[in-house]
Measured scan of single mutants.
Amino acid sequence: ETFPLDVLVNTAAEDLPRGVDPSRKENFLSDEDFKAVFGMTRSAFANLPLWKQQNLKKEKGLF
């Protein structure tokens, strides 16, 4: 299941849709939104070091 970017960005855990893991908001973006937000594919993002993934998520309001 995916959700629009505005539902996930800068949203407190208690305000997220049911079933969304607040530590993994990026997994609930569509592939198109994911690429638009991070400028890379999911596989490229997954290959980044964890610290870099976290920094990007913070920068984009998805942490």
Score class of each variant (00 low, 15 high):
E32S: 10
E32N: 09
Q54L: 13
L16H: 04
N55E: 15
K35P: 01
A44Q: 13
K58H: 09
K58W: 12
G19V: 12
A12E: 09
K52W: 11
V9I: 14
E59S: 10
L62M: 08
L16D: 06
F28Q: 04
S43V: 13
F28G: 04
L8D: 03
T41Q: 07
V37Q: 02
L5S: 04
L29R: 01
P22A: 11
G19P: 05
N55T: 13
L5H: 05
D33G: 03
V20W: 04
L5T: 04
E14R: 10
W51D: 11
K52G: 05
T11V: 14
S30K: 05
P22D: 06
S30A: 07
W51H: 10
A44W: 06
L56H: 02
F45L: 01
Q54K: 11
K52P: 00
L16N: 04
F38C: 01
E26V: 05
F45S: 00
V7R: 12
V20I: 10
V7T: 10
K25G: 04
M40S: 00
L5V: 09
Q54F: 12
L62W: 09
P4D: 07
K60M: 07
K57L: 11
L8F: 02
L5M: 09
F45D: 00
K25F: 06
T2C: 10
D15L: 15
F28S: 11
L48T: 01
S23G: 12
S23P: 04
N10H: 11
F63C: 15
D15H: 11
P22R: 06
N10G: 11
T11W: 10
S23Y: 14
V9A: 10
R24G: 07
D6K: 10
D31Q: 06
P22F: 02
R18K: 15
E1H: 13
V9D: 04
P4E: 06
A36S: 13
P49I: 01
A44F: 09
L48V: 01
N55G: 11
K57E: 03
S30Q: 02
K57N: 02
L48Y: 03
K60A: 14
L8I: 06
N47G: 11
V37I: 11
T11Y: 07
F63M: 15
S43K: 13
G39S: 08
R24T: 07
D15P: 05
K60N: 11
L62I: 08
N10Y: 06
P22M: 05
D21S: 04
D6F: 08
N47P: 00
K25N: 03
T2W: 13
T41E: 12
D31F: 03
W51I: 10
K57R: 09
N10K: 08
S43D: 13
D33K: 03
P22T: 06
G61N: 06
V9F: 06
E26C: 06
V20M: 06
F34Y: 02
D33L: 05
P49V: 02
Q53D: 00
W51F: 09
T11S: 12
A44I: 10
M40R: 01
G19H: 09
N47V: 11
R42W: 02
F28C: 07
A36G: 08
D31I: 06
V9R: 12
E59W: 07
S43P: 08
A44T: 10
G39W: 02
F45Q: 00
F34R: 00
R42S: 02
L48D: 00
D21E: 06
D31N: 08
R42D: 00
K35T: 13
D31L: 06
L16A: 04
F38N: 00
N10M: 08
N27D: 15
P17G: 05
N47T: 12
L50T: 11
P22E: 07
E26R: 02
R18Y: 11
L50K: 10
T41C: 08
T2L: 08
V9K: 10
D31P: 08
V7K: 11
L29G: 01
F28H: 14
